[in-house]
Amino acid sequence: MINIKNLHARIGEREILKGFNLEVKKGEIHAIMGPNGTGKSTLASVIAGKNQYEVTEGSIEFDGQDLLEMEADERARAGVFLAFQYPIEIPGVSTTNFMKAAINEKRKSQGLEPMPAKEFLERMKEKMALVEIDKAFMSRSLNEGFSGGEKKRNEIFQMAMLEPKLAILDETDSGLDIDALRIVSNGVNKLRNSENAFIVITHYQRLLDYIVPDFVHVMYDGRIVKTGGKELALELEEKGYDWVKELV
């Protein structure tokens, strides 16, 4: 699905990703853990195509395509989805219109007519039920005045609407209460299939009880320093990160 090789990226003069390698296959779930400021969100942004970051070395192959050659919108239409750590508030754009525009823009690029209203509404209804989000949120301005948990649920809702091949969840669990965590995880588990893949960035082993990863990676100072199974998350929770820092 995605193959990241020796990725180096910087912002301004500062190098943040320093030789990052990761391969994710169809049907897999990978968790990335690591101390604050090690570059997890930067990695997610670079994959999604935020052009603030400059890639100086390395490659990302996605579904047989050179991802780094594609614009952010093309990447999204090709099936990359980023659930933001800090979803942006957008006054004046409703979630409904946002999703309509996103779906129809993809259809346009495929030479298709806009999705028929009935089909769109049915999909909305189905996905709202999946993440237990109230209809009232859909006509409100995107994320404006939403609580932290509501914003995160809205990210998962968008993911469900767009049905990406690869979803990167950047701390989607942070700030969620246990009910919301269960809802979000259920959403992910229902969407999971043998054709798609997930990269789950988290600080908490708790999430991984719900979304069970195939691999857990520890990231430190811009690269992966240790990889293991889901038991690695438990070990990290117990021992903290100091011992991995010494692995560098």
Binding site: K50, A72, D73, A76, F84, I88, I90, F98, A101
Partner: peptide, 9 residues
Amino acid sequence: FYLIARGIS
């Protein structure tokens, strides 16, 4: 970027 990251040009 938020809009673009959802596939909107």
